[in-house]
Amino acid sequence: MIGRLKAHAVRTAEVSSGDVQGRGGGRGTASAARGAPPPAAESVPVEALQTSGGPRTGGEDAEHVQLLAALHTQLPPIVVHRPTMRVIDGAHRLRAALLRGDDHIMVRYFDGAEGDAFVLAVQLNSEHGLPLSLSDRKAAAVRIVASHPQWSDRRIAEVVGLAANTVGAVRQRSTAQNEQPNASIGRDGRVRPRNGAEGRLRAGELMRANPEASLREIARLAGISAATASDVRARLNRGEPLVTPQQRQAVARESPPGAMARRSFRPDGPASDVLLVSLSKDPSLRLTMAGKILLRALRVCSVDADGWARIVEAVPPHRQEVVARLARECATAWQCLADRLSERTGESSTEAG
C-alpha cells in the first residue's frame, strides 16, 4: 500500500507540475500547457487555504488521508486557486499535512477564472489519485454545463469522464437550459451549431426569402457549413425535407413533451417551398412591381409552425384581439385572391376547350 501511495505521489507531482498553467483554452484546461515550465511552488500557511467547492461532494477519504500522512517522503505541492485560496488539487494532501501538525504546505497557484479552476480540479482528480464517484462526475457535469455553456457535450464528457449523451441529458435537465447558446465549442476548438436541424431550417428560410443569395452568405447567416447549405438548397429544390431523419430523431429526444407538435419539419416534403422558389425565378413576376409585391407577401407567409408559435408568443395580451382580427382579414383577402385565380384558371380552361 505504501509503495502504491509513493507511486501516486510521483504521478501527482508530474500532473500538477505540468498542468497548473492551463486557462481553459484548446482541448481542455489541463492540456493547454503541456511542455510549459511549471510555476514555482510557494510555502503557504495551511490556515489560509479552503477546501470547499471541490468536485468531491462527500469530502475527503479519511483512510487515504491517514495513509498519506504516514509517508516519510515530502508530498508534491498542491494546486490552489489564487483569487479564492481554494484547493483545486490536493485536498487529501492538505488534510495529511494538518494531521502531521504542519503549519505550512507547498503550493502552486492557478490564476484563472473560478469556473476554469473547477474544470481543472475535475481534470486533475480524474488523471491521478482517488477517482471521482459517478455521482461526483454527474454533479461536476451540471456545474460545467452552467459555467461553460458554450462547450460541446463531448468536450465536457472528456473532462468529467462520462458519455457525451449523459452530458446531453444533464444539459436538458439543467435550469440554465434556456440560456444555452445555439453554437458550441468542441474538443478541437471549432465552433459548431448545437442543433443542426435549427441551422438547416434557418438556412431554408433565408433561401426562400432571398433565392439569389450565395451559399457562402447563407451558411454565414445560418451558422452552418457551406457544404450543409448546399445540401439544404438541393433538398429544397427536390422538394425533400430540409432536416435529416437522424436530426429529427435527435430533436425529438431533446425536446420537452409537446414541443414537436409546434415544429414543422414537413416530413412529406416542403412542396410549398419548391413552388415559391420556382415563382421567385419567374421573370414575369420577379421583374414587375406587382409580381415583387406578391412574392414578398408569399415569403412573409411562408413560416413554419415553430415560427408561428414564436409570433403568437410575441403578441402582447392587450393586442391579441386586434391582431386576430387583422389576421382573419388577411386570410379573407388571400382566400379572395385564391378564388379569383381559380376563376381565371377555369375561364382559361373553357376557352382552350
Rank of each mutant, 00 (worst) to 15 (best):
S31K: 02
L120A: 00
V145P: 02
A290E: 04
L134E: 08
A32Q: 15
D116N: 01
L94K: 10
V65L: 08
Q150N: 06
A32V: 08
S214C: 06
L276K: 14
M1L: 06
A197G: 11
S31G: 08
A183I: 07
G129A: 09
H81N: 04
T288G: 09
I293F: 11
G58K: 14
G35N: 08
R325H: 02
G54R: 14
R143G: 09
A183D: 02
A140F: 07
R216W: 06
P267M: 03
R344W: 04
E351I: 12
L236H: 14
A338H: 15
A197T: 07
M85P: 00
A70C: 14
W151M: 01
L298I: 03
L341N: 03
E351H: 13
V145M: 02
P55K: 04
H128S: 04
T332K: 14
E321Y: 00
S174K: 13
R344T: 01
E114K: 09
L275Q: 10
R23H: 05
V300C: 05
L287W: 15
R155Y: 00
R95L: 03
S230Q: 09
A229Q: 00
E47A: 05
R93A: 01
P77F: 07
V323E: 02
I156T: 00
P256C: 09
P270N: 07
